[in-house]
Every structure is written in C-alpha cells, then in structure tokens.
Design a protein around this nucleic acid. Sequence first.
DNA 1: TTGTATGCGTTATCAA
DNA 2: TTGATAACGCATACAA
Lengths: 356, 356
Amino acid sequence: MTPKPPTPTLHDVAEAASVSTATVSRCLNFPEKVSERTRTKVLEAVKKLGYMPNFGAQAMAARRTNTIGAIIPTMENAIFARGLQAFQDELRLHGFTMLVASTNYCPEVEQEQIRSLVARGADALLLIGHERDPEIYDFLETQSVPYIVTWNYDTASGHPSVGFDNQSAMQSIAQQVIELGHSRLGFITASTVGNDRTAARLVGMRAAMTEAGLNPDKLACVETTYGIEQGAVAFQQIMQATPRPTAVICGNDVLAVGAMRAARELGISVPEDVSITGFDDMELAKVAYPPLSTVHVPHGEMGRRAALALASHLKNGEPLESVKLETRVVLRGSLTAPQTADQTSQDLSGTPFAIG
Amino acid sequence: MTPKPPTPTLHDVAEAASVSTATVSRCLNFPEKVSERTRTKVLEAVKKLGYMPNFGAQAMAARRTNTIGAIIPTMENAIFARGLQAFQDELRLHGFTMLVASTNYCPEVEQEQIRSLVARGADALLLIGHERDPEIYDFLETQSVPYIVTWNYDTASGHPSVGFDNQSAMQSIAQQVIELGHSRLGFITASTVGNDRTAARLVGMRAAMTEAGLNPDKLACVETTYGIEQGAVAFQQIMQATPRPTAVICGNDVLAVGAMRAARELGISVPEDVSITGFDDMELAKVAYPPLSTVHVPHGEMGRRAALALASHLKNGEPLESVKLETRVVLRGSLTAPQTADQTSQDLSGTPFAIG
DNA sequence: TTGTATGCGTTATCAA
DNA sequence: TTGATAACGCATACAA
C-alpha cells in the first residue's frame, strides 16, 4: 500500500538519483553537459517516477515556452485545417508546440484569444489576415510577441505575412468566367467587414468586370455569413434577380458548395443553367458534383513557411520577412460557357463586348 | 521617451495602486472581498498598465488552470469540429477554457498529447473512444486528472462516457439496407485497430447480416485509413469483387463521399447501380450528390453534455456519470432498393431470404 | 562536472 | 479590510 504518488517534481527525481535539482534540470535540457554516468542515473529515476516537468513552472523560470499560438476564425470547416496541420508539423521539427484557438469570426473573441495565448506564454503567434484593431498590434508590440499573418500578402499593412494576393486571385478566376462569355454575374461573399481577404476578393471581382467592360454595379452581390447553409440561401436570393445570372462566383468553396446544393434543390442544373465557382480548393471542391472550379490556395506551403519563419526568428533571431505565394485557377465541371443566351437583349446591358 | 514596459506584473499593479500584491490578487479573484474604494483604485491601475495575469504563475500557485484539454484524432475533417464547438461553448459558460490537441489517429502521439496537456495543467480531459493503453489510464489516475470519453457509450469499459452505441447504430442502418433487398454487400471501414468505434461498427454490420440470414463472411470488406481519397480507392477495390455488391456501407461519411466520387469516376451511378451509405451525418452528407444516407450522430449534444459533466464535476464534485445518446438513421438519395437483379443466381449465394 | 542559491509571478495562509 | 510571507516547480548564474 504505497500512499499516493503526488505527481513527482524535479526535487523528487534529484533525490531518487542522489544529485542536485540543478543536475537533473541540466540533464534534461542539455544532456551533453552532464557525465555519462549521472545521466543514466538521472534518466533512470525520471522514467521510474514517471516524471514530467511542470509546464507552468518551466515557463516561468525559463521565460519561454516553445509554444506558438495559432488563432483561426473557425475549426468548423476544414478550410484552415490543412494549413494548420502543415504549420504544426513544421513547428514540431523545430521543437515548438502549437496551441490553437478559434474566434468564430468575432473580433472581440479574437482579441480575447490573443491575450489568452500571450498570457499562456506563447512565444509567437500565427494570425489570419491583417485587419484588426490597432490596439491589438500595440499589445503584441509592447509584449514583444512576434507574429506572422497568413492568408493574405500585403506589404502595405506593415505586418509580416506569408500569403497570397486575394484580389488578383479572384480577379483571375472572374476573368476566366467572363472570357467564357458570361456577362450576367452573381457573387456570394462572406462578410467583408473586418475581413481583408473577403474584401480584397470582392475588389478583384469588380476589377475583372471593369477590365472586361462590364459594369461592376450590375453585379448581383449577396453578402452572408460563412457556411454551407448560408451559401444555399444566398444562391436562392441571387437566382431571383432578373435577368438571372448565368454564373455565380463565390468567395469560398464552402459557400459555393452550398450554392450548388441550392441549385439542385431548385432544379437548376450546374453548369448547364448556371456556372458556379469557389475559392480555396478544399477537398470539398473535388467531391462536389459537378466538381467545383475554384482558386487553388497553397495551404500546406503557407503553413509550412509561416512556421519556418517564426521558428528561425525565435531560434536565430532572423527577421520576419513577408513571402508571397502564388495561387492558380483550377477548372472543373462546374464552369462552362453560358448556354445559348435566350434573352440576348438584356444580356448585353452594358454592352461589354462592344466596348471591350 | 518611456523605456519599454516589460509586461506588467501583479507587483507593478500593486505599486501603481499603492496596495499590496495580495490585495490586487484578491481584488481580481474575489472582488467582493475588497472595499469599494480600493477596488476601483486597483482596477484602474490594472487597466492603465494593461495588466494580464501570467498563466503559468497562476497555475503554479493556484494548482488549477480552469482549462480542459480535448484530444481528438484529427482536425482535418470537420467530424469532431461541431462537437468540439459545442463543448467549448458550454465550457465557457462555466468559466473553463478549452485546449485542443490532435493525434492523427496515432496512439503514441495521443499519449504524448495527453501528457503534454496534463503538464500544461489541464484540470480535466476529453477523450475520443475508450480504447487505449491501460498505462494511460493509470497515468491519469495517479495524476488524478478526471476525464470523460465521448463518441462511444460502453459501461463495461469502466470509464465514464457520453456517447452512443456504435454497434447498434451501424446495425440499424445495415438492417435498412438489407430490408430494401440488398444482399451483396460491401463495407469500407477506417482502421479498426485501437479504435473501438470503428470496430463496434463492423460488428454491428456483421450482426445485421447474420440476423437477416446472410453470411457475414461474404461481406466484401475493405479496411483503409481515414480520408476521402482512401474511400475512393477502397471503393474501386470493392467494385472488383464478383459478384459486385449492390450496396456499399461505409464506416463514416468521409469514406462514403470518397466512394461516391470514385463511383462517378468509374461511371457507376449511385444509387441506380450501387447504393452507398455513410455514418456521422456531417454537413458533407447533405451536399454530396446524391445526398448521403447515413447515421445521424448528435454531435452538439454530445459535446455539450460532456462539458457539463466535466464542469459540474470540477466545480461541485459531482461524480462523472455516463450518458447514452441516441442516433438515428437518415435516409437520403444515395440508397434505394437494388435495381432488377441481373444475376439472380449469384445473387442468392447464401440464400438469405430462403433462410431468413 | 556538479551543487548552491536565487528569482520567476501568482495564490493563499495567517496576522494585524 | 488589508499586508507580510511562504509556497508552487523549475532554470540558471555563479561558485566549487
């Protein structure tokens, strides 16, 4: 009947190995700075007692945690999952642990989570997008917590980022849609307030229209919250516009898949009656039917490079530099040229091709 | 030119408010035990300095963190996301914070993550499924870290759980498939080693066959790893069996959706040529085409009740009791009766209906 | 190579 | 109602 073994401490290990606590600590952190003999002795005691360092104490004494926090909008959809996985894997290679928190797209919650992760001792932070209350950046500054922004590349913001150009990416796919002959366009976007990525994509959409000689004010645009269901509802709304769009560009794959579901429910066939495109190239895009044309985002590389940047900054003091990644349009079955326009007169309002 | 304000401590606040650190601490933790006057004074200083307690120090001194760890197999797919969200929301209501870690379905990683979360001071843990090295349970025991198991209900295991009966759930849907007239069946399952949920589902599948007078050994079963791609590959394999199954039951929605993709690629139509079913009822199931028949799992309630159990255990010492949740079969377009059997002779190998 | 001693930022006990 | 002060478990500068 041993009493109870209250989670062993450094002290217990030291005692068991008949050395000082300093030696045990050294042995664990710098095995090479300790003699072969004592090392085995200590390691034995560690194993026997099932010793595990207390994280809080460690953090307090060492003033670092080897932990990096990642704050993402949501875990609900797999959007950020692939990038995070890569981020974590790369971090682990460098001896860091990832802590993740989600904000549900709410700025207040994000602020709270950031403070919480900093309080927890995060050595650095991964953030999604640049746009947030300057107060937060000030906080990070005074706490001297380094961070890197992903999912957007924007040197103007003054914050180091590993991302891509949302505007031109969206512009590219919109361009292709237009080049196929679509001129009555619909757009479904997640909320653009406080979200630089969605806002930039909308700008890209309008730019593509303008460039093609279409009037961007004729864009049937619906802004909604993030989700499959929301995408479905938005699609219904858009389909009530007259003349009906022949192509609906969505700000992300999740909305697009919702739109496709709605189309099916409404008896509207894709792409015969209406083309639909997404953005992100989640796995979802390939299992959708028809497969979704979308913008491929290099999730994995983004996560990996963000981790690399942070790790080498923390370990070797290398400066955090922004890196721009490339996206590419992926054409799949959900997008084709518009079928024989039955209402050519309305079709050409704005006479795009005459001007372009 | 103020120097730099190195993240303020309790001491700094105390100084600024001209009180003792003890008072500040009290003021923050038990506002009612401090005089109105000093309270405002202190709170003012806190705000002015932007003070935020150091988590590690707090944890060490208070010997509790108000943090609950959740260890899930993967964040890649949204399977656990909905439940986790509910878990977190409910926890927050009770003043707890959630920390999540993923194992990638690897027992070693899980053990590592469990130890890591415990070292980080998690007051309790959420685990998925019962089956794991007893050593882990021993560890949790001696560290006296309470935990609750979800995604399975199994009183025999001796571990408190909030979940459902995977075996009977799978048995239900398989039963319905068989009742529709399918007798040549395929089964795609994620790895069943170290995974009590998948193992139980397989048992349920076989039980349904036996009960219907079918020979479970004739089940065309493919075991693979978790993922859409893997589901697709498995489906291809299964379709090579002769006679070809008329229905493929999948252990989860992700595999099922992969199977549907593969079917499309092979020119096999669902459900005309082959019916497909899933398990979990993720949002994915509804956007799939045709919509996926599956087993609905009460993700939200499961998360919520797990949180509730843990919170009231930690706060009021209430015992952790198991609760059994109900699932239900959801019929959608991916499942119909088999079309005119063209190879009746082979069809009846095992003469199911003669016996049943 | 090893040990001693101090401090990290809180909480909580005990006096005042 | 408030203030000293002793833990809490570990890392590390310094001494041996």
